[in-house]
Amino acid sequence: MSENSAVTVLGLGPMGRALAGAFVAAGVRTTVWNRTPGRDGELVGQGALRAASAAEAVAASELTVVCVVDYDAADSVLRRADVAAALKGRTLVNLSADTPTRARDAAAWAADHGVRYLDGSIMTPTTTIGTPDGVFIHSGPKDLYDEHLPVLFALGGTHTHLGEDHGRAAAYDVALLDIFWTTMAGCAHALAVARAEGVTPGELAPFAMGIGAILPGAIEDMAAGVAAGDFSGAANPITSSASSMKHIIAASERHGIDAGVMRAAAGQAERVIGLGYGTDGFVRVTELVAGRLAEAANRG
């Protein structure tokens, strides 16, 4: 790492501390600041520099990385007059999580204030930061990304530039977290139903892992089908999916277990069937939730 490399980290929650720690460990001169005092003690002990204010922190480095809970929290810090003035002409990498619209809004604000801006998302937990297992995605000007990549590499893992549109990293983020959290909701529900039927979590887990192993191929097939406009259900029609969902709902509710998530999925399947697409696969739900399926049926 160059002797001139430097970074400021704003936000010292668990992820922010992990980011700052990785920069320090890589030999990057790292200035830190947090809205709530007292979270920087360990980092300062490791060699980080404590700033008395956000504006002072930003002025200490050409590159600032902000990682807070969402863009409301980021805006409350960055859009203060003294901080915005300190950021002018410098680069801001926003690794906070929010929507693509908020990312584009942040980019527009940055442009209006002379701030060079990259948006990004962290797709792995704090334990991966500074290791080969971290996954970072970025969007915004490619030349700006290339300029600061040597410092960002200190965070470890893989870094991928997804395009010039500042909202593109956030679009990937929300789509991928959609998969993660609906899967986690299904796991939590499955454990509750199994336990109600006398199956312990330890007994279920090995079989649940087997279900998880099916998902990569299923995701790949669904993605290929949507890309090609092929919603065939020759191997597993959506009528079969709807039937198995009914069994899950019945077994859950017999024990007083909330089946709201499964009822929502079953409702989508039934709507697809009701519109005349019962021979298609569950992938046809993609068109339903996007508001395109009814139009296709009406044209028929």
Score class of each variant (00 low, 15 high):
C67P: 07
V68R: 09
V69M: 15
V69F: 10
D70K: 10
Y71R: 13
A74R: 15
D75G: 09
D75Y: 13
D75Q: 12
L78H: 14
R79L: 01
A81D: 13
A81S: 13
D82F: 01
A84Y: 06
A86K: 05
A86H: 04
L87M: 07
T91W: 05
N94H: 13
N94L: 04
N94M: 03
L95F: 03
A97D: 13
A97G: 10
T99V: 04
T101M: 14
R102S: 12
D105S: 07
A106F: 15
W109H: 09
A110I: 09
D112K: 08
H113S: 05
V115I: 04
V115K: 02
R116H: 11
Y117K: 05
Y117E: 00
L118C: 05
S121M: 05
S121T: 14
S121F: 05
M123Y: 15
M123P: 11
T124Q: 13
P125F: 06
P125S: 02
P132K: 08
P132Q: 04
D133N: 12
D133S: 08
G134F: 02
G134L: 01
V135M: 08
V135L: 14
F136E: 02
H138C: 04
G140P: 05
G140C: 04
D143N: 11
L144M: 07
Y145F: 03
D146K: 01
E147V: 15
H148E: 13
P150W: 12
L152P: 11
A154I: 14
A154F: 12
G156E: 04
T158Y: 09
T158S: 13
H159W: 08
H161M: 11
H161N: 05
G163V: 15
G163A: 11
E164C: 05
R168K: 15
Y172V: 01
D173R: 06
V174F: 14
L177C: 07
D178N: 09
I179C: 08
M184D: 00
M184G: 02
M184N: 08
G186K: 11
C187W: 08
A188K: 14
H189F: 03
